[in-house]
């Protein structure tokens, strides 16, 4: 799958495009987890994501653990209704700092 990787305002921004399912979750894992080896905050922008399954939630849980262990903040932004629904059903919404969109997430600052 296409995964954009940029830096904006000192924040590492990862933008997965399309679907995160059991077939593509590995690619997201390989792109996302190494970002916690650097001190910049990490933002996963879901604006171009149409779909996520529990395989994708697993990768985000691994990222949250890496964030907690390293102290590198993790933020999420730009969830569609479908993606937001999966986060809520799974009880994942409360585990993350979730912003309406990328601009709001970049403006948030702070430690988490």
């Amino acid at each position: 799958m296409e995964i954009r990787n940029e830096t904006e305002n000192g924040v590492a921004v990862l933008t997965p495009v399309g679907r995160i399912d059991s077939n593509s979750a590995r690619e997201v894992e390989e792109a996302l987890l190494p970002l916690f080896d650097q001190p910049r905050p990490v933002l996963v922008d879901f604006a171009a994501l149409t779909y996520i399954s529990s395989a994708g939630l697993r990768v985000l849980l691994l990222a949250a653990r890496r964030s907690k262990a390293t102290g590198v903040p993790l933020r999420l932004a730009g969830m569609s209704k479908a993606v937001d629904e999966v986060f809520k059903i799974s009880g994942f919404a409360k585990l993350f700092q979730i912003h309406a969109d990328r601009a709001a997430a970049l403006a948030a600052g702070g430690t988490g």
């Binding site: 399954s53 939630l57 697993r58 849980l61 949250a64 799974s90 585990l95």
Partner: peptide, 22 residues
């Protein structure tokens, strides 16, 4: 357990939970 925190949270069983909810 949907209330477990980041370290205790297990992903096994989440898929079936999603199916039941949907």
């Amino acid at each position: 357990d949907l209330d477990a925190d980041i370290d205790e949270r297990a992903v096994g069983g989440l898929g079936i939970h999603i199916v039941r909810a949907m």
